[in-house]
Write a protein that binds this DNA or RNA. Structure first.
Lengths: 119, 119
DNA sequence: TTATTATTCAACCTAATGGTTGAGCAACGA
DNA sequence: TCGTTGCTCAACCATTAGGTTGAATAATAA
C-alpha cells in the first residue's frame, strides 16, 4: 500500500531529492542508471574525479532514495529508484496549471514536447 | 522564438534551479508567488528568519531565473517565472517513460493525482 | 594464507550556504 | 529638509558540500 508521509517528512524528501539533483555529476549518474544497473566502478569510470568522490555522490543519492545498493561479490551494484523523481515531479506539477494558463514562455514548453509517446 | 541554450548552460540552469528548490523556505516562497506577486516584506512576513535572509533567498531564486524583481516606489515586487520550472520538469520527464513502464511505486504516483483543484 | 579487487571510511582542505547584525541607500510623506 | 519605509550590501559565523589522499574492510582468487 501507499506509504503515508507527514508534511515535514515530505518536505525533507524534497530537500534531499532536489539537492541531490542539483549536482551535474549526480544527474549524470541518474541518467546512466536509467539505462540499467551499474557498479560503483562502472559509474565512476567516465568521470575525472576520484573513485571515492563518486562513492560519496552515491551516498547522497541513496539518502535521497534515488539509488538502492545491493551486494554481488565484492561489488555493490546500484539501481535507480524512481519514486523520489515522481515526488519531485509531483511538486513541480502543482504549478503546471499556473504555467498552462499563462503565456509566459509557453513556447518553450511546447517546443520541448517532442515525441512524448505518453501523457 | 525559443532561446537556444548550449548543453553546458542547460546543465548550469538545472544546477541553479534544482539547487534553488532544495530549500524549504525557497519552495515556500515559490508556492506563495504562484498565487500572485508579492513584495519582499510580504514574502518575509510568515517566516521566523530575518528579513535579510529572505532577501538572500530571493537572490538565489532570481539567479535561477525563478523570480523577477521590478520596482514600485520603495518596494521591489517579485514575480514568479515558470520557465525554469518547465526546464526542471522536462529533465524529470525524461524518466517518465522509465517509471511508467515500471511498477516500482507506481501506486504513489497514482494516489497523489487527486482532485487537483488548485496549487 | 596471501594477494587482488571493489568499495567504504576517516581525516583533511576549500569554497559555498544559510543564518545573523549593522550600515547604507532610494523613494516617499510630512 | 527630515524622518520613515523598504530593501540591499557588507562583514561575519557555523555548518555543509565536494573534492582530495590514505587506510581499512570484505569477498574472491591463487
Amino acid at each position: 500500500m501507499v506509504e503515508q508521509r507527514s508534511p515535514e517528512v515530505r518536505e525533507q524528501q524534497l530537500d534531499a531529492v532536489f539537492g541531490a539533483l542539483a549536482d551535474p555529476t549526480r544527474r549524470a549518474i541518474v541518467r546512466r542508471l536509467a539505462s540499467g544497473d551499474a557498479t560503483v566502478g562502472e559509474l565512476a569510470e567516465p568521470f575525472a574525479i576520484s573513485f571515492q568522490a563518486v562513492s560519496k555522490h552515491l551516498r547522497v543519492l541513496e539518502l535521497a532514495g534515488l539509488v538502492e545498493r545491493s551486494r554481488r561479490a565484492q561489488q555493490r551494484p546500484c539501481k535507480l529508484r524512481i519514486e523520489p523523481l515522481v515526488a519531485a515531479g509531483g511538486w513541480l506539477g502543482d504549478y503546471r496549471e499556473l504555467w498552462e494558463s499563462s503565456f509566459d514562455r509557453l513556447d518553450v514548453h511546447l517546443t520541448k514536447k517532442k515525441g512524448s509517446s505518453h501523457a
